[in-house]
Computed example of a mutant assay.
Amino acid sequence: MSLATLWALGSVGDRLRVAYRLLSKDLDMQIETTAVIRNVQKGTASGDLTTHGLEFDQLDPAQQMAMKAFVFDRQDDALEWSHGAR
């Protein structure tokens, strides 16, 4: 997962507790889990966001399926918004 914030939430290797909602036309699921920070990219200018690369520790099977469905829904949306351009 990529997470952008106004400041660094930790360093590489630190663990975070994350909670978010996956919402699409056929899906509405709250996910709460822990994640390991795998990379941190700080913005270069004042006010730039800091981007964190996160790896989830564990997701149960229902959460994994919800994540996959959400990603596929977003891919379908992107294809529709681009009018099928390749």
Rank of each mutant, 00 (worst) to 15 (best):
Q58K: 10
R38E: 15
Q41M: 09
D57T: 11
G13I: 03
R38T: 11
L27M: 05
G47Q: 06
S24F: 00
Q41E: 12
H52L: 01
V12C: 07
V18K: 00
R17M: 10
L16Q: 04
G43Y: 09
A35G: 06
A19C: 10
L16A: 05
K42A: 14
V36Y: 06
D14C: 10
D48P: 07
L22W: 01
I31A: 07
L59T: 02
D26E: 14
T50F: 01
D48R: 02
D48Y: 10
R17E: 13
D57N: 11
G53T: 07
A19W: 03
S46A: 13
G47K: 06
R21E: 10
R15L: 13
R38W: 04
A35S: 13
N39H: 15
F56E: 00
D60T: 11
T44R: 15
D48K: 01
I37F: 09
L22R: 05
R15F: 15
A45W: 00
V36W: 07
R21A: 01
G53M: 03
L22Y: 00
Q30I: 09
R38Q: 15
L49T: 00
K42D: 03
F56C: 06
G47I: 08
I31D: 03
L22H: 05
E32Y: 05
G53C: 05
T44W: 07
N39K: 04
Q30H: 14
Q41G: 00
G13Y: 03
L16W: 06
G43F: 08
N39S: 14
T34D: 08
L22P: 07
T44E: 15
D28A: 11
G13W: 04
Y20I: 00
D57E: 15
L23F: 09
T51Y: 06
T51V: 15
Q58P: 00
G53H: 01
D26H: 13
G13A: 05
L22F: 07
D28Q: 10
S46T: 11
E55V: 04
L27W: 00
A19T: 14
I37S: 08
T33Y: 08
D14S: 12
Q30G: 02
F56L: 14
V40F: 04
T44Y: 12
G43T: 07
A45T: 10
K25G: 12
D14Y: 08
G43E: 10
T33M: 08
S46N: 10
M29Y: 02
D14I: 07
Q41L: 12
K42W: 01
A35V: 09
V36I: 13
I37H: 04
Q41I: 11
Y20M: 07
K25S: 11
K42F: 02
T51S: 07
S46E: 14
H52T: 03
S24H: 07
L54E: 01
E55R: 14
Y20L: 12
L54F: 03
R38S: 08
L16V: 10
D26C: 04
L16N: 05
V36F: 08
